[in-house]
Design a protein around this nucleic acid. Structure first.
Ligand SMILES: NC(=O)c1ccc[n+]([C@@H]2O[C@H](COP(=O)([O-])OP(=O)(O)OC[C@H]3O[C@@H](n4cnc5c(N)ncnc54)[C@H](O)[C@@H]3O)[C@@H](O)[C@H]2O)c1
Ligand SMILES: NC(=O)c1ccc[n+]([C@@H]2O[C@H](COP(=O)([O-])OP(=O)(O)OC[C@H]3O[C@@H](n4cnc5c(N)ncnc54)[C@H](O)[C@@H]3O)[C@@H](O)[C@H]2O)c1
Lengths: 212, 212
DNA sequence: CCATTTTTGTTAATTAAATCACATTTATAG
DNA sequence: CTATAAATGTGATTTAATTAACAAAAATGG
């Protein structure tokens, strides 16, 4: 991929999606170039942090000019592989999963939930947004024909470890969970959490502490 | 609150909700005490990080013994104010907002969405999980009678700045958004983002980079 | 074409977080 | 009661991230 891969700081990679999205918005609004100071204003990141981040991906800017937005989009898009569809599977089509499936990353045409699974016989067979809900045991077969790059899980906490074990068994290595249950996985498997409760608690805690 | 407030590292505070939840789970399962090493195994945090984190909140452990789970729950619960109901407002009751409202933090009895708002006349007046959806303009009045500690926004990106301006005008200072649109707010107002697309992109990127 | 201004890219400095290493404390077993 | 083992709490160190500072590069405007 990029010439110098391993040394890019984690935090710089974490910010890449934000940069990418913001630059796309700017391009959509007709902007052709941007300076680190302007971009910093928009996304509330120090210009110097932005410049350093960008520098990891090559010599992207010009002194006294700034950055060519289309060029940045091109480079960052390549890293994020936005030109290949990234097929995802959704496990657990309850209230939350349903919302995700109906939306199905419509603003991000390369991300796509291509199959969905649940344990409840009442929802299996139902079709939402062109995706028919299957029993989880079908996943292994699906993977034979369609590439699944990652899984989004909205199963309850108590089912999560069991689900993950099966996913690992299927060869899935990237999992995003809305349930905060910590699970054990092999070292090559990545689990991320989107922990709503913690986010809210931290939000309130921060307010509490800072405005006293 | 805690005796020594301002100096607690951000990251230690960020982990507090995780500690709290995990300890509650352990207590529910009948455990009375825990060692930093055991806890570290469960939540995948270095024991030494845990001990340092805990130390910011007092002398909570005993050498050769570990930590008393009930005591930790007591201390952390106080900081997180779990014994007072934290009233929340939900703005935008679409697919995602609906899922949040139906669930309404049922696992966290002190967090509660007590009022919900939308712009769409078709959904205004509808009652979900005992909460009746109101026009957003009613928020200012609601705040007179019920304390709203924070807001969860699931309005689309294009509406977010406008909504935030109104929230700020109402005196709201804590906002959690599912739309990644960066907004400008006064310094005393905190906005957090729960950015699903970035999470997925980073998840896939991490896999890409680490298993090559 | 030159002087001035702007803005990058990066070295150096700073700040923050994580981890190491161990002295100290307490529990426990004999 | 003493010796041993276990586990904490924290200075010291290391690692990572951010920010400052500025030289070099490119643009712009006489
Ligand atoms: N909705 C929220 O507001 C919210 C907030 C915080 C966290 N969460 C987390 O997200 C999870 C899902 O939330 P929800 O509101 O959609 O709950 P839900 O109960 O509506 O949906 C859960 C779905 O998972 C399915 N499921 C259960 N076990 C399964 C298994 N072994 N394999 C496959 N599918 C299985 C169920 O049949 C159900 O359809 C919650 O349990 C919670 O951990 C949700
Ligand atoms: N659902 C997903 O999978 C998903 C994924 C990533 C991000 N998001 C973000 O979350 C947002 C909501 O997702 P959704 O699926 O619930 O969309 P949705 O369209 O179903 O719901 C949006 C709701 O917001 C309401 N609304 C619009 N403008 C408003 C205003 N000014 N004041 C009050 N209410 C207003 C709409 O009437 C609607 O009910 C998305 O726009 C997106 O930014 C959603």
């Amino acid at each position: 991929m990029t010439p110098h891969n391993k040394k890019i700081p984690r935090m710089s990679l974490e910010r890449l999606p934000i940069y990418y999205r913001t630059l796309c918005n700017l391009a959509d609004n007709g902007y052709l170039r941007i300076k680190s100071a302007q971009l910093g204003k928009i996304i509330q990141i120090e210009p110097t942090t932005i410049r350093r981040d960008f520098s990891y991906f090559g010599d992207l800017g010009k002194s006294g000019y700034g950055y060519d937005i289309a060029h940045l989009i091109q480079i960052f898009g390549e890293i994020l592989e936005v030109n290949e569809t990234q097929g995802l599977a959704l496990i657990g089509v309850g209230n939350l999963g349903r919302a995700l499936l109906i939306n199905n990353f419509r603003r991000n045409p390369n991300l796509e939930i291509i199959s969905a699974y649940d344990a409840d016989p009442h929802v299996i067979g139902e079709t939402i947004n062109k995706v028919t809900i299957q029993p989880l045991s079908d996943l292994k077969a699906t993977i034979q024909t369609q590439q699944i790059k990652g899984v989004i899980s909205t199963v309850p906490s108590h089912a999560f470890q069991e689900v993950v074990d099966y996913l690992v068994d299927c060869g899935i290595t990237s999992i995003l969970s809305f349930a905060p249950e910590p699970v054990h996985v092999p070292k090559n498997v990545h689990v991320r959490y989107l922990d709503l409760t913690s986010e809210v608690q931290n939000l309130l805690l921060l307010a509490e502490i800072s405005d006293v």
